[in-house]
Design a protein around this nucleic acid. Structure first.
Ligand SMILES: [Mn+2]
Ligand SMILES: [Mn+2]
Ligand SMILES: [Mn+2]
Ligand SMILES: [Mn+2]
Lengths: 218, 218
DNA sequence: ATATAAATTTAGACTTGTCTAAATTTATAT
DNA sequence: ATATAAATTTAGACAAGTCTAAATTTATAT
């Protein structure tokens, strides 16, 4: 059996490696969880023993296929529960992450599959992140930052690269929710802020910081 | 913060004291969980330190008001999730207990309240057990065993006092599900088995054992 | 009123996941 | 090519929850 802690490390390694590629460092994990590097080293040894990661002293870690499958399964559950919380229980998109952090560790294959069906096999979670299917396959949409659009280019808001509640609430209040059609009117050279037209109507200016963390499909 | 383990002990003490009254013994808990009495003693000290139980060496334990409230909250969540699993995800009544054992430990007041609302504020779980309301109030129905009915007395199946999957599946297969109207035709003196008429139509004979564990409202 | 038996607690130990402090390895900057 | 600095690991410790074996208390049966 895997402990909650083990599952959380696997997820962390998965996310820190930007969805598979890079090697993850001990310090990267220790900073994410706010625990000491020494504790991380201990756990990495354990995960390596269980064939969940590839680990060589001082060289950082990558997930094994088994480890990746496990991480993706947890992520699948996390995102399905987030959909449940928003679609069925009426939570806002900034309120669901912490609860899903608990629910993602409930280990019942049949529960996950039935939840998926109950929700209508959603493809993305409330933040636009793709939901892995039951085989662990992930459909990555091509998303680009608003800050990288050309003048007059349009797109549909489809994700965020920053998930803090404070940012999400700001977006919601400003009408920058998933599915909103935007056109970039101008990037102000001075400070990188972006002027947008929402749904061909409302105009709004957002900071470079915000424009960097809102993702659109073209 | 309370650990899963602490919550499970509180639930156990609550249930072993038959819903509040009696003192619970160390051995009672150790047998229920299949752990040693020594381990139980250790945990009882911890729960007493946290003011969750009243504990005097060698004298057994009772829940404090605080401990009882905590136990009831966990039971509320357990039963609400069981309703969810059956009503929304299509599980059978014999399949939900183990999953609910995990879900009951997700601690979010707002989640519990919204789940309750989503489910339509159910009063009983799939096994007929009452669901405590958000204030911890429990509406106990007056239930009697089939084995204690008089000849020709009728009742509606409304609960079970044995929750094993094997018993629940047997009941379902035999049509002895919640809401079924039964009439006791006769108790066979020889072995205590009971002849019933279901919904005024079908006849069935069940063992004394079964008749002892099916509960009806008159 | 004792002597057994049963129940419970204590003592000492192990695992998990964490910590601090010290040692070691790798990276960086002259 | 070295000397620092940064990253990582090792060593030793602790709390939680469990265990076994031994000691103690309470119950029961003459
Ligand atoms: Mn999340
Ligand atoms: Mn999400
Ligand atoms: Mn149950
Ligand atoms: Mn139940």
């Amino acid at each position: 059996m895997r402990s909650f802690t083990e599952e959380n490390y696997l997820k962390a390694i998965y996310h820190l490696s930007s969805n598979e590629k890079l090697t993850v460092t001990t310090n990267g994990i220790s900073e994410l969880f706010n625990i000491t590097a020494a504790s991380v080293t201990d756990m990495l040894k354990k995960l390596a023993d269980k064939q969940l990661i590839n680990y060589k002293k001082y060289q950082g870690v990558t997930l094994t296929n088994f480890g990746r499958d496990t991480a993706v399964e947890v992520i699948r559950k996390h995102r399905l529960w987030e959909v449940f919380l928003v679609e069925k229980l009426g939570f806002k998109w900034d309120e669901v992450h912490d609860i899903a952090e608990d629910l993602e560790h409930v280990n019942s294959k049949v529960l996950t599959e039935r939840l998926d069906i109950f929700l209508g096999n959603p493809k993305v979670d409330p933040h636009g992140d793709p939901i892995p299917d039951k085989y662990g396959k992930i459909n990555h949409q091509k998303l680009v930052k608003i800050s990288s659009l050309k003048t007059n280019q349009t797109g549909t808001i489809s994700g965020v690269s920053e998930h803090s509640a404070i940012f999400l609430r700001y977006l919601e209040k400003s009408g920058l929710i998933l599915g909103t059609r935007i056109e970039l009117s101008e990037i102000i050279e001075f400070d990188g802020s972006a002027m947008l037209i929402l749904d061909k109507k409302r105009e709004i200016t957002i900071s470079r910081e915000a424009a960097n963390n809102i993702l659109v499909v073209l």
